[in-house]
Simulated assay, not measured.
Amino acid sequence: MLEELGVNPEHNFTFARLMKSILEYNPDFELLGPGSPFVSQNELELLGALSSFSRKKSRMQGEVASAQLPGAMATLFGACGMALRIGGVIMKSRPIPASTSLPDMEVRARSLHHHPRLRPAKVVDVIEVSPRLRRIVVTGVSLFDFPEGRPGHWVKLFLEASNNGVPVGRAYSILEWDAESRRMTFDMALHCGGPMSQWAANARIGDRLSICGPRGGLVENNTRSWLLLAGDESALAAIQAIMAQSTPEKELHVFIEVSRESEIIEIPARPNSVIQWLLRDSENPETSSTMYEAIRCSPLPNQSGGAWVAGESGVVKKIRQHLLRERGFNAEDVQAAGFWKKGEVDFKDLAVG
């Protein structure tokens, strides 16, 4: 509705944040319907009268006007008003008499949480973790209600610039999510070609992008005493996130494949974890199966465990088959997904979630 009225989509989450705060401050407030003091669905008149909604509602109920709203509320009102002025929306209040009914009007409440559309964000920090890995931190008002999700979950990032009118977007796992400061961190592997890789290599503070998600992440159907984590550079952020959120008692066996020794990074120490860094065959990168061979030859625990594997689609399939056929893993305890596939752009694997 906001977009149809010409409001910049970047300001939609300011409105959502405002409504969330209103409902927390006054749970009885009604946005639409016969009991609401405003008609707002078509003309969006609600925001034009927000600064006085509490006073008007109190008068309709025969109550004494409440004290001035908290400063944070006033700030939100001002932010929404600015968004509407930028969008060119003309606002005015139109109270409805208590006896008035609205015939033939069906109102369906829709949650403001977990908005499926794009969330605008901007880059606030860029760190060179290794020659081929960039740690990029973003934040934005639109992330105010971003769900915690599962460890290792991912989002799709879209560049502000477009390619022939088509938005450029790729999926990236979330390394860290700080809900209090609304800061989201990604580790982006750089490779030859690709618009997102080029952007990450040259990212600067202040760059803008949009976020859609989250999805996926580690699903543990059964609580197992140990967990196998395996992946290449594309899965490095997810592996670190899963390790950080695993209980100290759980035994972790981690295999990480990189192209060269300079790509080995420091991962915070964790009890009951064994990390093996694997160097990909640089002479035959297209046919290398370093990670598969390392797992196949590794003396993993005999008791039933869980597994999370991600990376190149063909390698991931071989590892999954090995775990099921030769290691005796239960199918429901093996989560394996191709994050990318040789020869394909923006590869999509349904197993990713």
Results as ranks from 00 to 15, higher is better:
residue 89 V to R: 14
residue 4 E to L: 15
residue 234 S to M: 10
residue 233 E to K: 07
residue 81 G to T: 07
residue 333 D to Q: 10
residue 232 D to S: 05
residue 263 E to P: 03
residue 342 K to L: 14
residue 296 R to K: 15
residue 122 K to Y: 15
residue 22 I to A: 03
residue 26 N to G: 00
residue 314 G to Y: 07
residue 142 S to E: 01
residue 256 I to W: 01
residue 59 R to S: 12
residue 226 W to N: 02
residue 151 P to Q: 06
residue 266 E to H: 10
residue 137 V to G: 00
residue 238 A to E: 07
residue 174 I to Y: 01
residue 162 S to D: 09
residue 13 F to G: 00
residue 253 H to E: 11
residue 220 E to H: 05
residue 275 I to E: 01
residue 94 R to G: 06
residue 274 V to T: 14
residue 134 R to H: 12
residue 246 S to E: 08
residue 228 L to C: 07
residue 117 R to V: 07
residue 159 L to M: 08
residue 210 S to L: 09
residue 212 C to K: 11
residue 246 S to P: 03
residue 95 P to A: 10
residue 313 S to K: 10
residue 61 Q to W: 11
residue 267 I to R: 01
residue 162 S to T: 14
residue 16 A to C: 09
residue 317 K to C: 03
residue 28 D to R: 05
residue 202 N to E: 14
residue 218 L to I: 03
residue 211 I to S: 00
residue 122 K to M: 15
residue 242 I to C: 12
residue 108 R to N: 14
residue 10 E to I: 12
residue 319 I to D: 00
residue 123 V to C: 12
residue 234 S to D: 04
residue 326 E to G: 01
residue 184 M to Q: 08
residue 333 D to A: 02
residue 143 L to W: 07
residue 75 T to G: 13
residue 225 S to Q: 06
residue 125 D to P: 02
residue 36 S to R: 04
residue 288 S to F: 03
residue 353 G to H: 04
residue 68 Q to Y: 06
residue 115 H to I: 06
residue 12 N to F: 08
residue 207 D to N: 13
residue 309 V to D: 02
residue 84 L to P: 00
residue 202 N to M: 09
residue 11 H to V: 00
residue 117 R to F: 14
residue 295 I to T: 02
residue 329 F to W: 12
residue 116 P to Y: 06
residue 1 M to V: 09
residue 101 S to K: 15
residue 303 Q to T: 15
residue 81 G to Q: 13
residue 315 V to T: 09
residue 256 I to V: 15
residue 273 S to N: 07
